[in-house]
């Protein structure tokens, strides 16, 4: 598999200003604080973490909807960190986004036809072609052609999400960032949409970055998974490897917290104390040490970097994991 996207030490900080007349920068919300990852063509990379860990901001920064504070985004071997104007516009065609809330992400005043064909119009497709493409898209996402004259309020949540997917596919993108695409849906509908997304991936050879907080869904759909905590990737690896043998205490806690739909076996649960610290004032050293049940002195002083776990496609950033191979530079998997 060839590399499609590479992100290096990506940071996105939102400045905090104080004072109405002469605003002065007093701090920054460190939403994304130095993440590095690669995405290969045709694969699905899952990005998990709790609310506020920066996973959505990471997605939007990669799409260049937000300007990165630091770091590099390399798409198909080209550095796109600072592209602007016409070049950026062309890039938009290749990267699309599916939003979380199917109720808020569609314009209630536009018919489905208008919504789905708008991107094609912007990129100058002829009217005839647009219609052909629209019919084809509605078919692949499982809607009927007569649906195109309807407005969003006439659809259920699951159908709206299908429309959102059709819109994302309108320009034949290579990379789709899915920001919690199924979390607003009921379980029976959620399964339909996940299946659809998997089918589309095969049919159009799509690459997904799948952002979600539901660990079971991410496990189902991903090839590789990155776990984020307070703007940093604490663990990244191949899905079965990471779920089967989690190394980082946070990943362990997350996995043990999922209520699983089978009551027989009671697992030992790692209960985390307290809440996520504020990203505007993150803890020193390892950001997780305030909630980590095994934190030692070194965790409070030295920030851990991602290190390779021997013999597996798996990296972890924790001082307490001993079997890792030391690496001076955090190179993305």
């Amino acid at each position: 598999m060839s590399e499609l996207l590479r992100v290096q030490n990506l940071k996105k900080h939102f400045p905090i200003y104080k004072g109405a007349v002469f605003p002065k920068k007093t701090g920054a919300v460190q939403a994304v604080d130095g993440i590095s990852l690669t995405v290969n063509k045709g694969e699905t990379l899952g990005l998990v973490g709790e609310s506020g860990c920066g996973k959505s901001t990471a997605g939007r920064t990669i799409l260049k909807l937000l300007d990165p504070t630091e770091g590099q985004i390399i798409y198909k071997g080209q550095d796109i960190t600072n592209v602007k104007g016409e070049e950026l516009r062309k890039l938009r065609k290749e990267m699309q986004l599916i939003f979380q809330d199917p109720y808020a992400s569609l314009n209630p005043r536009k018919t489905i036809e208008q919504t789905v064909t708008e991107p094609m119009k912007i990129f100058g497709m002829s009217k005839e072609k647009r219609q052909q493409k629209l019919d084809r898209l509605l078919e692949v996402v499982g809607l009927d052609t007569y649906h195109k004259y309807r407005y969003p309020h006439e659809f259920s949540g699951g159908q709206r999400q299908r429309i959102g997917i059709a819109r994302a596919l309108a320009l034949d993108p290579e990379l789709i960032i899915c920001d919690e695409p199924v979390s607003a849906l009921d379980v029976s509908i959620q399964a339909q949409v996940i299946n659809l997304m998997e089918d589309l991936q095969k049919e159009f050879n799509l690459t997904y970055i799948f952002i979600a907080h539901d660990l079971s869904v991410v496990h189902h759909i991903s090839d590789r998974v990155a776990v984020m905590y307070l703007g940093e990737i604490v663990e990244i690896g191949e899905v079965e490897e990471l779920y089967g043998d989690p190394k980082h205490p946070y990943t362990k806690a997350l996995l043990s917290s999922i209520p699983e739909a089978r009551p027989v076996e009671k697992r030992e649960r790692i209960m985390l104390q307290g809440d996520l610290p504020s990203p505007s004032n993150p803890p020193q050293g390892c950001k997780f040490h305030t909630r980590c049940p095994w934190a030692e002195d070194i965790c409070k002083q030295k920030k851990p970097v991602l290190k390779q776990v021997p013999g597996a496609e798996h990296q972890v950033a924790c001082h307490l994991v001993k079997e890792v191979v030391e690496e001076t530079e955090p190179t993305p998997v």
Binding site: G158, A191, H220, E240
Partner: peptide, 24 residues
């Protein structure tokens, strides 16, 4: 049955989720 088989389960990864067809 439909509900139970449409949730992805970590201990038992399926190639494909069995969704309940249609809408409520």
């Amino acid at each position: 049955w439909g509900l139970l088989s449409s949730i992805p389960q970590i201990h038992n990864r399926k190639e494909r989720l069995e969704a309940i067809k249609g809408l409520p």
